[in-house]
Design a binder for these strands. Sequence first.
DNA 1: GTGGTCTAGACCACG
DNA 2: GTGGTCTAGACCACA
Lengths: 129, 129, 129, 129
Amino acid sequence: MDASLLLIQPAAPEPIYRQIVGQLRRMIASGQLAPGDLLPSVRDVAGQHAINPMTVSRAYSLLESEGALERLRGKGMAVAATHRRIQPEDKRMQLIDLHLRELARQARELELPSEPILRRLGELLEDQE
Amino acid sequence: MDASLLLIQPAAPEPIYRQIVGQLRRMIASGQLAPGDLLPSVRDVAGQHAINPMTVSRAYSLLESEGALERLRGKGMAVAATHRRIQPEDKRMQLIDLHLRELARQARELELPSEPILRRLGELLEDQE
Amino acid sequence: MDASLLLIQPAAPEPIYRQIVGQLRRMIASGQLAPGDLLPSVRDVAGQHAINPMTVSRAYSLLESEGALERLRGKGMAVAATHRRIQPEDKRMQLIDLHLRELARQARELELPSEPILRRLGELLEDQE
Amino acid sequence: MDASLLLIQPAAPEPIYRQIVGQLRRMIASGQLAPGDLLPSVRDVAGQHAINPMTVSRAYSLLESEGALERLRGKGMAVAATHRRIQPEDKRMQLIDLHLRELARQARELELPSEPILRRLGELLEDQE
DNA sequence: GTGGTCTAGACCACG
DNA sequence: GTGGTCTAGACCACA
């Protein structure tokens, strides 16, 4: 996996290490990152995105402690071989359900009708496929 | 306007004062709060939600500094009379567009198909109407 | 004296009662308001400027307590007969000296040269004469 | 930048956090503080002037929200790199124009002639250069 | 009654 | 190390 697959937005409100954690977690759940896949080194990621190596390291450690990654001595971090395989769709849906709820609440506060929201989201989803 | 119209989630990652700012901003943009409307007093909001008055005050001050609210001396805070009135739908759509983009990105990372996401969001949007 | 001689700016940072106090104090010091001159009633001032009568009353009371005004039963407030007469120029200069110092400090922070400032102030001073 | 460059007057009517905001805003407009310059830490400023860290933090946050400062995570606050550079003289003049107008109004109320005012201000401006 | 300011201090999040 | 958030409470300013 290439370090540049990660999207880091230093100015975003979400802390950098959590951006990394979230992205890796999702790519593992979907199988884009498979058990055994080697991750780019802390130094690579930090260098490419001009962020602090400690930040990357923290993200990796967090994923290691939850069993998603494992440290291969001398080789770096890899997706854990023992990790549960690709998660079923309903599990993956759960990972964005909170977002969907929050979005719906904000739409109500903005008194936005459903139609344009669904249309816009539909576009964005297709764009990226 | 009733203090209880605000939804405060102390455990959420988003700081309380920003929850308040966001909600009020959206309700002003949609016209649910109209220019001249008096907001519940700092003490009311703080009391009802069991939070510190300064937290509420901070939210109000922030909205004042961006021109959305104005201080009526001795009476409290009100939606600014000089404030641009209800924003058109496309302007309000912009206020959630970043969320939509972020959602789409995460869906791609999770390799989720469009259909169940749109269906779920549709449900949530209808529920609240 | 006409109530409309006062300039009230409700949105200014300076509290309204102090705007009133300051203006009256200066107009008394310069002799524009002479001992014995009757002030407009609290109700008049409040009405003309759409402010709270209590605010006007507070300003009058403050000036009374410092001996600049006196309460004439049944007639209202007037410039105190016993009040020291017109103040000499150097005394009046003192009343704006702090402002001048503050202005000079801000000019230095802005790295503004003296010339345009003095020119602009000169214009403003002439305009109003 | 040294924390001691700020002049804090706890007894002044202007609140401390706004004194800080004003001074920094002007020093940025003049280029005395350039984009990228790191500000003294909240704790430094608070310590040196014996004020509460939150008071300083409030000033910094306000400047951040208006785009003058940016947070460098883990390093502190800096003059925003994206900030418009030094403002031209006429823009900087605008920042004190209200003061000049107010001064002129008070001079008129005091019936002070232009000459001594301009002379005094001239002195003060030269003193500081 | 309203909001504003400031303090002291705790705790968290980030790097 | 940095700033952010929140609390509890005091006191002030204003209308």
